[in-house]
Design a protein around this nucleic acid. Structure first.
Length: 795
RNA sequence: GCCGAAGUGGCGGAACUGGCAGACGCGCCGGACUCAAAAUCCGGUGCCCGAAAGGGCGUGUGGGUUCGAUUCCCACCUUCGGCACCA
């Protein structure tokens, strides 16, 4: 008997698939039926040195789904590419020398090899990588489109700046308000940065969550992230300045309880107040210090801080003059950067009021009714919200308002290894887009990638000098690059038409395949990537470039793979990686075990004992099926236990993989079938059918060994065979196990004819000696019969 | 603080629609084969009492609904995750 040799088997079939172009899908024919297409995408990997266990999980999931759908008669697009721009390659280049491109391409080559060895059925003809000009020129083109549509823009936003070194500092480079390099006091400076107007779609991004089949937790995270809150904007007057300043509040019902007014240090009004304030020095000093603090630092402060401006604001509800403070717990980025403080009904306002001895006025009683609120006294708070805003509205002092936590997406990066932003700055014409005909703006070669606080590209002086597209006079190129999330916001569109040199994609082709039917990836991308990609689709749809507004109809979020946990096994002591795993056990066992450990949606713990067990199972299947293959018997399997078990297993696996996406239980079901087959032995008349069924059902998980055994059984090209169908007539049983309970406790169980009537069931149940001993002459008060399940006597 | 997910044997987990708790696997125990070991095969394995038959207990805790609850409801505890001076 030949021994199971995964290395030989896997190499053999990988070769066969490649020669047969088994996973290649052609472009759709014009007018082709879309109902049987399926577009399956796993989040494209960042090409770090090697594959890790997380990759094994994600791509095996995608492969199982793709192979299953192919055999269910669907045209399946299952592509792969690399998210190949980004920081790690740049950092590696800084640390070890070499060019980020070389490092990246070397890694891609290594990982590609490993992916092939895992047997993942990708359409390799569609391989794309973000760092190639053939890809990123379309990043640039899309940027120009969004710019034209007003969905990309530039604005100044405050950064930490060292006035001595003349560089931007990252948060981590500021210690106690001083520069990490020279110790100079850091100041805040407005720096122009690029933004996408994600907030233009805030409402839709929120509302459309209702209509996509995503996990609840991901939807919840996006809702949190978008953070819609409903409330009101209310105008307060500052009489001394003859100015008005508005605040956002979700609690207009507490308006009568406002006892002070607070401005963010960055609020434009602060400087105007400082000009006329007796304590201008203190005020400006406070503002300066607040500006160089990190947001988290401000939030973590044990005590609230602030400075009184010397001015007062007038509450439009009761004409009360309340003191205006500047306080760094007020955020310029949210609402209007100003707030009415109601210490009685807001913890933060209370903490501030206590610190600075500001009065606290309660305006809502324990019953939720308004007090101290003039004509609104006695109103329930919820009704009062609306009534007060209406009342203010009549006098032009307030209106309902909605605020979002979501901010526009700042996507420019002071980094080298990314897509150049196609803009030239001209003294006369400002930021001028590079004409489409001049794309791509190629990333130039430079010598030093180190972050110096100015973008590395600035050192490529010949490249930076470029003529202004409008006037031709010398201008300077944008030296910042795009966030890599730009690359990943549309790569799944490019997969549909990956080699198009004339356009980012052909709309007909993209609209045929898209949206993605099944997207798979880690929950760590719940907010950023999955929001940005949704934003892109909405924008591209509005631009007429695609025919849909949501990128991913179904999302499967996989858990994390923990290695060893507390109990690292064997004496290796080391973490075992996919490469060693394939070398030791073969890809099939690795793939199977990865999905068998537990529900793929949840975190899981990889153990070496576990894969030993799976390896045992695969060898067992190999041996058993081999024994069956040697027997000559063919033809229809006779009805019986084993035949029925095979049909039940087909039904179970089809449902688990197809509908429930419960991949671990499907494997368990096949194991049960294999156990039955083992018990029946290779000479059982149904053995061949059981073996063929087990092999066929295992194929999405363990494609190599399945293909090999399928061949041994005398067939060909399992990957093209229709998925087996359970014969309903074979699933019918003529007896079932009746459970008999007394007072809800199981006392006996035995086989009963399916056709038995209720009375017969009760009679049979009562006849049982075990049941009798529990009835023990007591009077049966009630009898419950559940057809084909149980009888319960209540005594 | 707000939002979300989850608590089941020694371990990973199963039980999909309120109906046999613990499928499947790991580990462990016993046996077969072997000079021996590995591999493989067979059997056992929730806990407690019992020689056994059998009985009792048992799905985080406490209550409730129900003939019957891992499943539904209420309260609480714990763990994990997201957001967070967001007004």
């Amino acid at each position: 008997m030949n021994r199971y040799d995964p290395k030989a088997i896997e190499a053999k079939w990988q070769r066969v698939w490649e020669d047969a172009r088994a996973f290649h899908v052609p472009d759709p024919e014009r007018g082709a039926d879309r109902s049987a297409k399926s577009y399956v995408v796993e989040m494209w990997p960042y090409p770090s040195g090697t594959l890790h266990m997380g990759h094994v999980l994600v791509y095996t999931l995608g492969d199982v789904i793709s192979r299953f759908r192919r055999r269910n008669g669907m045209a399946v697009l299952h592509p792969i590419g690399f998210d190949s721009f980004g920081l790690p390659a740049e950092n590696a280049a800084i640390k070890e020398g070499g060019h980020p491109r070389e490092i990246t391409e070397r890694n891609i080559a290594t990982i590609t090899q490993s992916m092939r060895r895992m047997g993942w059925g990708f359409d390799w003809d569609r391989l794309i990588s973000a760092h190639e000009p053939e890809y990123y020129r379309w990043d640039q083109w899309l940027f120009l489109k969004l710019l034209e549509a007003g969905l990309a823009y530039r604005k100044g936003s405050p950064v930490k700046w060292c006035p001595v070194d003349q560089v931007v500092l990252a948060n981590e480079q500021v210690h106690d308000g001083r520069c990490e390099y020279c110790g100079a006091e850091v100041v805040s400076k407005d720096l122009e940065q690029w933004f996408f107007r994600t907030t233009a779609y805030a409402d839709e991004l929120l509302d459309e969550l209702e209509h996509i089949a995503w996990p609840d937790r991901v939807k919840a995270m996006q809702r949190n992230w978008i953070g819609r809150s409903e409330g009101a904007e209310i105008q307060f007057a500052i009489e001394e300045l003859d100015a008005e300043v508005s605040v956002f509040t979700t609690r207009p019902d507490t308006l009568f309880g406002a006892t002070f007014f607070a401005l963010a240090p960055e609020h434009p009004l602060v400087e105007r107040l400082a000009e006329r304030s007796p304590n201008a020095g203190e005020l400006r000093d406070y503002v300066r210090k607040a500006a160089v603090k990190r947001g988290e630092e401000r939030a973590a402060a044990e005590q609230k801080t602030g400075v009184f401006t010397g001015f007062f604001a007038t509450n439009p509800a009761n004409e009360a003059r309340i003191p205006i403070w500047v306080a760094d717990y007020v955020l310029m980025e949210y609402g209007t950067g100003a707030l009415m403080a109601v210490p009685a009904h807001d913890e933060r306002d209370l903490a501030f009021a206590e610190r600075f001895d500001i009065p606290v006025v309660t305006v809502i009683d324990d019953d939720g009714k308004l007090i101290n609120s003039a004509q609104f006294d006695g109103w329930p708070a919820d009704d009062a919200k609306r009534a007060i805003v209406d009342w203010l509205g009549e006098r032009g002092r307030g209106t309902t308002a909605i605020n979002f936590r979501l901010r526009d997406w700042g996507f420019s990066r002071q980094r080298y290894w990314g897509c150049p932003i196609p803009i030239v700055y001209c003294d006369e014409h400002g930021a001028v887009p590079v004409p489409e005909s001049e794309l791509p703006v190629l990333l130039p070669e430079i010598d030093d990638y180190k972050p110096k606080g100015i973008a590395p590209l600035a050192s490529a002086e010949d490249w930076v000098r470029a003529p202004c597209p409008v006037c031709g006079k010398e201008g300077r190129r944008e030296v910042e690059t795009m966030d890599t999330f730009v690359d990943s916001s549309w790569y799944f569109l490019r997969f549909c038409d990956p080699h198009n040199d004339d356009a980012a994609w052909d709309r007909g082709i993209v609209d045929w395949w898209s949206p993605v039917d099944q997207y798979i990836g880690g929950v760590d991308h719940a907010t950023m990537h999955l929001i940005y990609a949704r934003f892109f689709m909405k924008a591209l749809n509005d631009l007429g470039l695609i025919g849909f507004r949501e990128p991913f109809l179904n999302l499967f979020t996989n858990g994390w793979v923990q290695l060893g946990g507390s109990k690292m096994s064997k004496s290796k002591g080391n973490v075992i990686g996919p490469e060693e795993l394939v070398a030791e056990y073969g890809a099939d066992s690795a793939r199977l075990y990865m999905l068998f450990i537990g529900p793929a949606r949840e975190d899981m713990d990889w153990t070496d004992e576990g894969i030993d067990g799976m390896s045992r199972f695969v060898r067992r299947v190999y041996r058993l099926v081999g024994e069956v293959a040697e027997r000559a018997r063919h033809g229809e399997p006779p009805p019986g236990e084993l035949t029925r078990k095979a049909h039940e297993t087909i039904a179970k696996v089809t449902d688990d993989v197809g509908r429930r996406q419960s991949f671990n239980t499907a494997i368990a079901a096949v194991m049960e079938l294999v156990n039955e087959l083992s018990k029946a032995g290779p000479d059982d008349p149904a053995a061949r059918f059981a073996a063929e069924t087990a092999v066929s059902l295992l194929q999405p998980y363990a494609p190599h060994v399945a293909e090999e055994l399928w061949e041994q059984l005398g067939h060909e090209r399992l990957w093209e065979q229709p998925w087996p169908a359970a014969d309903p007539s074979q699933l019918v049983r003529d007896t079932f196990e009746l459970v008999v309970q007394v007072n809800g406790k199981v006392r006996d169980r035995f086989e009963v004819d399916v056709g038995a009537s209720e009375d017969e069931l009760i009679a049979r149940a009562k006849a049982s000696a075990r049941v009798q001993s529990h009835l023990d002459g007591a009077q049966v008060r009630k009898t419950i019969v559940v057809p084909r399940k149980l009888v319960n006597f209540v005594v």
